[in-house]
Design a binder for these strands. Structure first.
Lengths: 214, 214
DNA sequence: ACTAAGCTGTGAAAGTCGTAACAGCGATGC
DNA sequence: GCATCGCTGTTACGACTTTCACAGCTTAGT
Protein backbone atom coordinates (compact mmCIF):
# COMPACT_ATOMS: atom_id res chain seq x y z
CA UNK A 1 0.00 0.00 0.00
CA UNK A 2 2.91 2.40 0.45
CA UNK A 3 2.81 4.32 -2.81
CA UNK A 4 6.23 5.77 -2.31
CA UNK A 5 7.58 7.91 -5.11
CA UNK A 6 10.53 7.00 -7.29
CA UNK A 7 12.58 9.89 -6.06
CA UNK A 8 12.06 8.99 -2.44
CA UNK A 9 13.20 5.41 -3.04
CA UNK A 10 16.39 6.69 -4.61
CA UNK A 11 17.11 8.95 -1.67
CA UNK A 12 16.40 6.23 0.87
CA UNK A 13 19.08 4.15 -0.78
CA UNK A 14 21.43 7.10 -0.51
CA UNK A 15 20.57 7.74 3.14
CA UNK A 16 21.29 4.16 3.99
CA UNK A 17 24.74 4.34 2.47
CA UNK A 18 25.48 7.51 4.40
CA UNK A 19 24.20 5.92 7.60
CA UNK A 20 26.56 3.00 7.09
CA UNK A 21 29.45 5.44 6.86
CA UNK A 22 28.24 7.08 10.04
CA UNK A 23 28.18 3.71 11.75
CA UNK A 24 31.76 3.15 10.68
CA UNK A 25 32.60 6.48 12.32
CA UNK A 26 31.01 5.31 15.57
CA UNK A 27 28.13 7.76 15.39
CA UNK A 28 25.06 6.53 17.23
CA UNK A 29 22.51 9.14 16.30
CA UNK A 30 22.03 11.80 13.66
CA UNK A 31 19.77 14.81 13.11
CA UNK A 32 17.80 15.36 9.95
CA UNK A 33 19.84 18.40 9.03
CA UNK A 34 23.10 16.46 9.36
CA UNK A 35 21.89 13.65 7.15
CA UNK A 36 20.51 16.24 4.76
CA UNK A 37 23.83 17.98 4.51
CA UNK A 38 25.61 14.72 3.75
CA UNK A 39 23.04 13.81 1.12
CA UNK A 40 22.90 17.26 -0.45
CA UNK A 41 19.20 17.83 0.20
CA UNK A 42 17.17 19.83 2.73
CA UNK A 43 16.31 18.71 6.24
CA UNK A 44 12.60 18.84 5.51
CA UNK A 45 13.13 16.48 2.62
CA UNK A 46 14.87 13.97 4.83
CA UNK A 47 12.10 14.07 7.39
CA UNK A 48 9.44 13.67 4.75
CA UNK A 49 11.23 10.75 3.14
CA UNK A 50 11.53 9.01 6.48
CA UNK A 51 7.82 9.54 7.04
CA UNK A 52 7.27 7.19 4.13
CA UNK A 53 8.88 4.27 5.92
CA UNK A 54 7.16 5.09 9.20
CA UNK A 55 10.29 5.50 11.26
CA UNK A 56 10.15 8.07 14.05
CA UNK A 57 13.06 9.85 15.65
CA UNK A 58 13.29 11.65 18.93
CA UNK A 59 13.16 15.44 19.15
CA UNK A 60 16.16 15.46 21.43
CA UNK A 61 18.44 12.81 19.93
CA UNK A 62 17.36 12.77 16.30
CA UNK A 63 17.46 9.35 14.67
CA UNK A 64 19.29 6.29 15.95
CA UNK A 65 21.72 5.40 13.21
CA UNK A 66 21.59 1.67 13.70
CA UNK A 67 17.83 1.41 13.95
CA UNK A 68 17.20 3.70 11.03
CA UNK A 69 19.59 1.71 8.86
CA UNK A 70 17.65 -1.40 9.74
CA UNK A 71 14.29 0.23 9.07
CA UNK A 72 15.37 1.38 5.61
CA UNK A 73 16.72 -2.09 4.91
CA UNK A 74 13.45 -3.74 5.88
CA UNK A 75 11.65 -1.34 3.60
CA UNK A 76 13.92 -1.56 0.55
CA UNK A 77 15.32 -5.06 0.61
CA UNK A 78 13.96 -8.47 0.02
CA UNK A 79 14.71 -10.51 3.17
CA UNK A 80 16.09 -13.40 1.12
CA UNK A 81 18.04 -11.21 -1.30
CA UNK A 82 17.58 -10.87 -5.05
CA UNK A 83 19.59 -12.45 -7.84
CA UNK A 84 20.68 -10.41 -10.82
CA UNK A 85 21.80 -11.27 -14.34
CA UNK A 86 24.27 -9.15 -16.27
CA UNK A 87 23.97 -9.26 -20.05
CA UNK A 88 26.92 -7.99 -22.06
CA UNK A 89 30.44 -8.53 -20.81
CA UNK A 90 32.19 -5.73 -22.66
CA UNK A 91 34.15 -2.94 -21.04
CA UNK A 92 31.13 -1.60 -19.24
CA UNK A 93 29.86 -5.01 -18.19
CA UNK A 94 33.20 -5.91 -16.63
CA UNK A 95 33.31 -2.59 -14.81
CA UNK A 96 29.88 -3.28 -13.34
CA UNK A 97 30.92 -6.76 -12.26
CA UNK A 98 34.01 -5.39 -10.58
CA UNK A 99 32.00 -2.70 -8.90
CA UNK A 100 29.35 -4.97 -7.40
CA UNK A 101 31.57 -7.93 -6.73
CA UNK A 102 30.62 -8.89 -3.20
CA UNK A 103 29.50 -5.39 -2.32
CA UNK A 104 25.79 -5.73 -1.56
CA UNK A 105 24.97 -9.05 0.04
CA UNK A 106 21.31 -8.59 -0.81
CA UNK A 107 21.86 -7.88 -4.50
CA UNK A 108 23.95 -10.60 -6.07
CA UNK A 109 25.02 -10.71 -9.69
CA UNK A 110 24.93 -14.47 -10.04
CA UNK A 111 25.34 -14.86 -13.78
CA UNK A 112 26.71 -13.01 -16.78
CA UNK A 113 25.76 -13.61 -20.40
CA UNK A 114 27.43 -12.81 -23.70
CA UNK A 115 27.28 -13.79 -27.35
CA UNK A 116 31.06 -13.97 -27.70
CA UNK A 117 32.05 -17.67 -27.41
CA UNK A 118 35.47 -16.62 -26.18
CA UNK A 119 33.97 -15.20 -23.00
CA UNK A 120 31.58 -18.05 -22.30
CA UNK A 121 32.43 -20.30 -19.36
CA UNK A 122 35.10 -17.96 -18.10
CA UNK A 123 34.75 -16.55 -14.61
CA UNK A 124 35.07 -12.77 -14.52
CA UNK A 125 35.33 -10.93 -11.20
CA UNK A 126 33.86 -13.97 -9.51
CA UNK A 127 30.93 -14.34 -11.87
CA UNK A 128 30.52 -17.09 -14.42
CA UNK A 129 29.72 -16.16 -18.00
CA UNK A 130 27.11 -18.20 -19.85
CA UNK A 131 25.99 -18.40 -23.46
CA UNK A 132 23.33 -15.81 -24.16
CA UNK A 133 21.19 -18.55 -25.67
CA UNK A 134 21.12 -20.33 -22.31
CA UNK A 135 19.64 -17.32 -20.54
CA UNK A 136 16.08 -18.65 -20.17
CA UNK A 137 17.26 -21.88 -18.62
CA UNK A 138 19.90 -20.38 -16.34
CA UNK A 139 17.61 -17.58 -15.19
CA UNK A 140 15.04 -20.08 -13.98
CA UNK A 141 17.60 -22.36 -12.37
CA UNK A 142 19.23 -19.51 -10.46
CA UNK A 143 15.95 -17.75 -9.60
CA UNK A 144 16.89 -14.51 -11.34
CA UNK A 145 14.34 -11.70 -11.45
CA UNK A 146 16.48 -8.67 -12.28
CA UNK A 147 18.69 -7.86 -15.23
CA UNK A 148 21.41 -5.37 -16.15
CA UNK A 149 21.66 -4.61 -19.84
CA UNK A 150 25.14 -3.60 -20.97
CA UNK A 151 25.01 -4.51 -24.65
CA UNK A 152 25.09 -2.24 -27.72
CA UNK A 153 21.90 -0.35 -28.45
CA UNK A 154 21.10 -2.51 -31.45
CA UNK A 155 20.80 -5.65 -29.32
CA UNK A 156 19.20 -4.14 -26.25
CA UNK A 157 15.58 -4.65 -27.26
CA UNK A 158 16.11 -8.33 -28.04
CA UNK A 159 17.88 -8.88 -24.75
CA UNK A 160 15.13 -7.08 -22.86
CA UNK A 161 12.54 -9.36 -24.40
CA UNK A 162 14.54 -12.46 -23.55
CA UNK A 163 14.85 -11.33 -19.95
CA UNK A 164 11.19 -10.41 -19.77
CA UNK A 165 10.15 -13.83 -21.05
CA UNK A 166 12.48 -15.44 -18.51
CA UNK A 167 10.46 -13.86 -15.70
CA UNK A 168 12.49 -10.77 -14.93
CA UNK A 169 10.62 -7.90 -13.24
CA UNK A 170 13.25 -5.19 -13.25
CA UNK A 171 15.90 -3.92 -15.66
CA UNK A 172 18.81 -1.56 -15.34
CA UNK A 173 19.47 -0.41 -18.88
CA UNK A 174 22.77 1.16 -19.95
CA UNK A 175 21.98 1.00 -23.66
CA UNK A 176 20.91 4.30 -25.21
CA UNK A 177 17.52 2.99 -26.30
CA UNK A 178 14.09 3.19 -24.78
CA UNK A 179 13.07 -0.41 -24.18
CA UNK A 180 9.59 -1.65 -24.93
CA UNK A 181 8.54 -4.13 -22.31
CA UNK A 182 5.33 -5.11 -20.60
CA UNK A 183 3.99 -3.45 -17.45
CA UNK A 184 5.35 -6.28 -15.31
CA UNK A 185 8.88 -5.03 -15.93
CA UNK A 186 10.25 -1.88 -14.32
CA UNK A 187 13.01 -0.20 -16.31
CA UNK A 188 15.58 2.25 -15.02
CA UNK A 189 17.75 3.87 -17.68
CA UNK A 190 21.28 5.10 -17.27
CA UNK A 191 22.25 7.02 -20.36
CA UNK A 192 25.84 8.11 -20.06
CA UNK A 193 25.96 10.01 -23.32
CA UNK A 194 22.89 12.08 -22.49
CA UNK A 195 24.23 12.79 -19.02
CA UNK A 196 27.50 14.02 -20.46
CA UNK A 197 25.69 16.23 -22.94
CA UNK A 198 23.64 17.69 -20.11
CA UNK A 199 26.83 18.53 -18.29
CA UNK A 200 28.21 20.10 -21.45
CA UNK A 201 25.15 22.30 -21.85
CA UNK A 202 24.95 23.49 -18.26
CA UNK A 203 28.70 23.92 -17.97
CA UNK A 204 28.47 26.29 -20.90
CA UNK A 205 25.50 28.08 -19.38
CA UNK A 206 27.11 28.65 -15.99
CA UNK A 207 30.34 29.70 -17.68
CA UNK A 208 28.40 32.33 -19.60
CA UNK A 209 26.68 33.55 -16.48
CA UNK A 210 30.01 34.02 -14.75
CA UNK A 211 31.27 35.98 -17.71
CA UNK A 212 28.26 38.28 -17.83
CA UNK A 213 28.16 38.93 -14.08
CA UNK A 214 30.91 41.49 -13.48
CA UNK B 1 17.58 33.77 -21.85
CA UNK B 2 16.26 30.27 -22.50
CA UNK B 3 15.57 28.93 -19.04
CA UNK B 4 15.17 25.42 -20.30
CA UNK B 5 14.60 22.73 -17.73
CA UNK B 6 17.05 19.94 -16.99
CA UNK B 7 14.70 17.26 -18.16
CA UNK B 8 14.12 18.96 -21.48
CA UNK B 9 17.85 19.21 -22.14
CA UNK B 10 18.19 15.50 -21.50
CA UNK B 11 15.42 14.67 -23.92
CA UNK B 12 16.78 16.97 -26.62
CA UNK B 13 19.99 14.99 -26.49
CA UNK B 14 17.97 11.82 -26.87
CA UNK B 15 15.93 13.20 -29.78
CA UNK B 16 19.08 14.15 -31.61
CA UNK B 17 20.45 10.65 -31.34
CA UNK B 18 17.20 9.22 -32.64
CA UNK B 19 17.19 11.73 -35.49
CA UNK B 20 20.67 10.62 -36.48
CA UNK B 21 19.43 7.06 -36.68
CA UNK B 22 16.54 8.24 -38.84
CA UNK B 23 18.97 10.01 -41.12
CA UNK B 24 20.90 6.76 -41.48
CA UNK B 25 17.65 5.13 -42.52
CA UNK B 26 17.14 7.77 -45.23
CA UNK B 27 14.13 9.34 -43.53
CA UNK B 28 13.71 13.00 -44.45
CA UNK B 29 10.91 14.02 -42.15
CA UNK B 30 9.25 12.83 -38.99
CA UNK B 31 6.08 13.57 -37.04
CA UNK B 32 6.04 14.36 -33.38
CA UNK B 33 4.21 11.15 -32.53
CA UNK B 34 6.81 9.08 -34.39
CA UNK B 35 9.70 10.70 -32.58
CA UNK B 36 7.75 10.38 -29.34
CA UNK B 37 7.26 6.69 -29.85
CA UNK B 38 10.97 6.17 -30.48
CA UNK B 39 11.88 8.18 -27.41
CA UNK B 40 9.27 6.60 -25.18
CA UNK B 41 7.43 9.84 -24.39
CA UNK B 42 4.19 11.49 -25.56
CA UNK B 43 3.79 13.52 -28.71
CA UNK B 44 2.82 16.60 -26.73
CA UNK B 45 6.07 16.33 -24.82
CA UNK B 46 8.10 16.29 -28.01
CA UNK B 47 6.33 19.35 -29.37
CA UNK B 48 6.75 21.18 -26.11
CA UNK B 49 10.45 20.35 -25.93
CA UNK B 50 10.99 21.58 -29.46
CA UNK B 51 9.24 24.83 -28.57
CA UNK B 52 12.16 25.49 -26.27
CA UNK B 53 14.64 25.63 -29.11
CA UNK B 54 12.31 27.61 -31.35
CA UNK B 55 12.22 25.17 -34.22
CA UNK B 56 8.98 24.98 -36.15
CA UNK B 57 7.74 22.08 -38.21
CA UNK B 58 5.09 21.97 -40.87
CA UNK B 59 1.56 20.73 -40.18
CA UNK B 60 1.66 18.56 -43.25
CA UNK B 61 5.19 17.17 -43.27
CA UNK B 62 6.12 17.27 -39.61
CA UNK B 63 9.76 18.10 -38.92
CA UNK B 64 12.62 17.94 -41.38
CA UNK B 65 15.06 15.46 -39.90
CA UNK B 66 18.19 17.14 -41.13
CA UNK B 67 17.21 20.66 -40.15
CA UNK B 68 15.93 19.63 -36.74
CA UNK B 69 19.16 17.76 -36.02
CA UNK B 70 21.06 20.91 -36.86
CA UNK B 71 18.82 23.10 -34.74
CA UNK B 72 19.26 20.88 -31.69
CA UNK B 73 23.00 20.87 -32.29
CA UNK B 74 23.15 24.65 -32.43
CA UNK B 75 21.22 24.77 -29.19
CA UNK B 76 23.11 22.13 -27.24
CA UNK B 77 26.64 22.25 -28.57
CA UNK B 78 29.48 24.65 -28.36
CA UNK B 79 30.45 25.52 -31.94
CA UNK B 80 34.13 24.90 -31.21
CA UNK B 81 33.57 21.75 -29.17
CA UNK B 82 34.38 21.14 -25.51
CA UNK B 83 37.33 19.30 -24.03
CA UNK B 84 36.82 16.85 -21.21
CA UNK B 85 39.10 15.34 -18.58
CA UNK B 86 38.58 11.87 -17.16
CA UNK B 87 39.86 11.30 -13.64
CA UNK B 88 40.23 7.71 -12.52
CA UNK B 89 41.35 5.07 -14.98
CA UNK B 90 39.98 2.00 -13.23
CA UNK B 91 37.52 -0.44 -14.73
CA UNK B 92 34.82 2.16 -15.05
CA UNK B 93 37.15 4.85 -16.37
CA UNK B 94 38.43 2.56 -19.11
CA UNK B 95 34.88 1.61 -20.05
CA UNK B 96 34.00 5.29 -20.38
CA UNK B 97 37.05 5.94 -22.52
CA UNK B 98 36.20 3.04 -24.80
CA UNK B 99 32.62 4.22 -25.02
CA UNK B 100 33.37 7.79 -26.01
CA UNK B 101 36.47 7.11 -28.06
CA UNK B 102 35.88 9.19 -31.17
CA UNK B 103 32.12 9.05 -30.81
CA UNK B 104 31.06 12.66 -30.32
CA UNK B 105 33.26 15.07 -32.25
CA UNK B 106 32.03 17.94 -30.11
CA UNK B 107 32.79 16.30 -26.79
CA UNK B 108 36.36 15.10 -26.70
CA UNK B 109 38.00 13.34 -23.78
CA UNK B 110 41.44 14.79 -24.31
CA UNK B 111 43.17 13.69 -21.11
CA UNK B 112 42.92 11.04 -18.43
CA UNK B 113 44.39 11.28 -14.93
CA UNK B 114 45.27 8.70 -12.31
CA UNK B 115 47.33 8.34 -9.15
CA UNK B 116 48.71 4.97 -10.17
CA UNK B 117 52.22 5.57 -11.61
CA UNK B 118 51.88 2.39 -13.65
CA UNK B 119 49.09 3.94 -15.71
CA UNK B 120 50.71 7.32 -16.20
CA UNK B 121 51.98 8.12 -19.70
CA UNK B 122 50.25 5.14 -21.20
CA UNK B 123 47.72 5.73 -23.96
CA UNK B 124 44.40 4.00 -23.27
CA UNK B 125 41.72 3.85 -25.95
CA UNK B 126 43.43 6.72 -27.70
CA UNK B 127 43.71 8.93 -24.64
CA UNK B 128 46.90 9.75 -22.81
CA UNK B 129 47.02 9.27 -19.06
CA UNK B 130 48.70 11.95 -16.96
CA UNK B 131 49.75 12.19 -13.33
CA UNK B 132 46.90 13.41 -11.18
CA UNK B 133 49.23 16.03 -9.72
CA UNK B 134 49.67 17.55 -13.18
CA UNK B 135 45.95 18.13 -13.60
CA UNK B 136 45.98 21.91 -13.03
CA UNK B 137 48.68 22.46 -15.60
CA UNK B 138 47.36 20.05 -18.23
CA UNK B 139 43.79 21.30 -17.85
CA UNK B 140 44.86 24.83 -18.64
CA UNK B 141 47.10 23.80 -21.51
CA UNK B 142 44.41 21.71 -23.16
CA UNK B 143 41.57 24.17 -22.42
CA UNK B 144 39.54 21.67 -20.41
CA UNK B 145 36.31 22.86 -18.80
CA UNK B 146 34.51 19.59 -18.06
CA UNK B 147 35.43 16.61 -15.93
CA UNK B 148 34.31 13.02 -15.44
CA UNK B 149 34.93 11.64 -11.97
CA UNK B 150 35.43 7.88 -11.89
CA UNK B 151 37.44 7.48 -8.70
CA UNK B 152 36.46 5.84 -5.40
CA UNK B 153 34.07 7.81 -3.22
CA UNK B 154 36.79 8.64 -0.72
CA UNK B 155 38.79 10.60 -3.28
CA UNK B 156 35.93 12.17 -5.19
CA UNK B 157 35.67 15.37 -3.15
CA UNK B 158 39.39 16.11 -3.48
CA UNK B 159 39.29 15.51 -7.21
CA UNK B 160 36.22 17.72 -7.58
CA UNK B 161 38.03 20.55 -5.83
CA UNK B 162 41.11 20.14 -8.00
CA UNK B 163 38.98 20.27 -11.12
CA UNK B 164 37.02 23.22 -9.86
CA UNK B 165 40.19 25.16 -9.12
CA UNK B 166 41.47 24.29 -12.58
CA UNK B 167 38.52 26.16 -14.11
CA UNK B 168 36.10 23.34 -14.80
CA UNK B 169 32.41 24.32 -15.03
CA UNK B 170 30.76 20.91 -15.28
CA UNK B 171 31.24 17.50 -13.70
CA UNK B 172 29.85 14.07 -14.43
CA UNK B 173 30.22 12.22 -11.14
CA UNK B 174 30.15 8.42 -10.92
CA UNK B 175 31.29 8.33 -7.29
CA UNK B 176 28.53 7.67 -4.76
CA UNK B 177 29.07 10.96 -2.93
CA UNK B 178 27.38 14.31 -3.13
CA UNK B 179 30.10 16.72 -4.16
CA UNK B 180 30.44 20.13 -2.58
CA UNK B 181 31.46 22.62 -5.20
CA UNK B 182 30.83 26.26 -5.90
CA UNK B 183 27.88 27.55 -7.92
CA UNK B 184 30.09 27.92 -10.99
CA UNK B 185 30.23 24.14 -11.32
CA UNK B 186 27.28 22.09 -12.54
CA UNK B 187 27.26 18.51 -11.26
CA UNK B 188 25.40 15.57 -12.75
CA UNK B 189 25.47 12.41 -10.67
CA UNK B 190 25.27 8.87 -11.96
CA UNK B 191 24.86 6.58 -8.99
CA UNK B 192 24.84 3.02 -10.22
CA UNK B 193 24.26 1.45 -6.83
CA UNK B 194 21.22 3.58 -6.09
CA UNK B 195 19.83 2.91 -9.55
CA UNK B 196 20.18 -0.82 -9.03
CA UNK B 197 18.50 -0.61 -5.64
CA UNK B 198 15.63 1.30 -7.20
CA UNK B 199 15.23 -1.45 -9.74
CA UNK B 200 15.30 -4.02 -6.95
CA UNK B 201 12.57 -2.23 -5.05
CA UNK B 202 10.22 -1.68 -7.98
CA UNK B 203 10.87 -5.13 -9.39
CA UNK B 204 9.70 -6.52 -6.09
CA UNK B 205 6.70 -4.21 -6.04
CA UNK B 206 5.50 -5.09 -9.54
CA UNK B 207 6.10 -8.78 -8.86
CA UNK B 208 3.84 -8.51 -5.80
CA UNK B 209 1.18 -6.72 -7.78
CA UNK B 210 1.15 -9.47 -10.37
CA UNK B 211 0.81 -12.05 -7.63
CA UNK B 212 -2.08 -10.27 -5.93
CA UNK B 213 -4.00 -9.59 -9.16
CA UNK B 214 -5.64 -12.92 -10.00
C1' DA C 1 8.68 24.08 38.87
C1' DC C 2 9.36 26.84 34.98
C1' DT C 3 11.55 28.80 30.97
C1' DA C 4 14.27 28.38 26.88
C1' DA C 5 16.13 25.98 23.11
C1' DG C 6 16.17 22.71 19.48
C1' DC C 7 14.41 19.05 17.01
C1' DT C 8 10.62 16.15 14.86
C1' DG C 9 6.20 15.36 12.33
C1' DT C 10 3.02 17.26 9.26
C1' DG C 11 -0.58 20.35 7.02
C1' DA C 12 -0.49 23.83 3.61
C1' DA C 13 1.73 26.74 0.06
C1' DA C 14 4.79 27.05 -3.79
C1' DG C 15 6.91 25.22 -7.55
C1' DT C 16 7.78 21.98 -11.29
C1' DC C 17 6.55 18.94 -14.78
C1' DG C 18 3.66 16.41 -18.00
C1' DT C 19 -0.82 15.94 -20.34
C1' DA C 20 -5.04 17.21 -22.47
C1' DA C 21 -7.27 20.04 -25.49
C1' DC C 22 -7.95 23.18 -29.02
C1' DA C 23 -7.17 26.90 -32.51
C1' DG C 24 -4.73 27.44 -36.84
C1' DC C 25 -2.68 25.94 -40.96
C1' DG C 26 -1.46 23.41 -45.16
C1' DA C 27 -2.51 19.73 -48.17
C1' DT C 28 -5.73 16.70 -50.41
C1' DG C 29 -9.94 15.16 -52.67
C1' DC C 30 -14.27 16.21 -54.69
C1' DG D 1 -13.50 26.56 -54.72
C1' DC D 2 -14.73 24.33 -50.66
C1' DA D 3 -14.90 20.90 -47.09
C1' DT D 4 -12.18 17.60 -44.69
C1' DC D 5 -8.34 15.69 -42.42
C1' DG D 6 -4.20 15.46 -39.79
C1' DC D 7 -0.56 17.65 -37.66
C1' DT D 8 1.68 21.65 -35.20
C1' DG D 9 2.07 25.46 -31.61
C1' DT D 10 0.29 26.89 -27.37
C1' DT D 11 -2.44 27.57 -23.47
C1' DA D 12 -4.72 25.76 -19.45
C1' DC D 13 -5.11 22.24 -16.26
C1' DG D 14 -3.83 18.48 -13.17
C1' DA D 15 -0.50 15.55 -10.82
C1' DC D 16 3.28 15.26 -8.37
C1' DT D 17 7.53 17.24 -5.50
C1' DT D 18 9.62 20.21 -2.65
C1' DT D 19 9.73 23.77 0.63
C1' DC D 20 7.76 26.52 4.31
C1' DA D 21 6.12 27.05 8.74
C1' DC D 22 4.47 25.81 13.02
C1' DA D 23 2.53 22.83 16.79
C1' DG D 24 4.19 19.41 19.97
C1' DC D 25 7.57 17.17 22.54
C1' DT D 26 11.85 16.41 25.24
C1' DT D 27 15.79 17.82 27.52
C1' DA D 28 18.79 21.25 30.05
C1' DG D 29 19.40 24.95 32.92
C1' DT D 30 17.90 28.08 36.62
Amino acid sequence: MPLTSHKTIGRLSLYRRLLMELTAERATNVYSHELASLAGVTAAQVRRDLMAIGYSGSPSRGYEVRELTGAIGRFLDDPTGQNVALVGVGNLGRAILAYFSGRRPNLRIVAAFDRDPYKVNRVIHGCRCYRLADLPEVARELDIHMGIIAVPASEAQDVAEMLSRAGVNGLLNFAPTSLRVGPQVYVEDIDITTSLEKVAYFARETAMKKEAKP
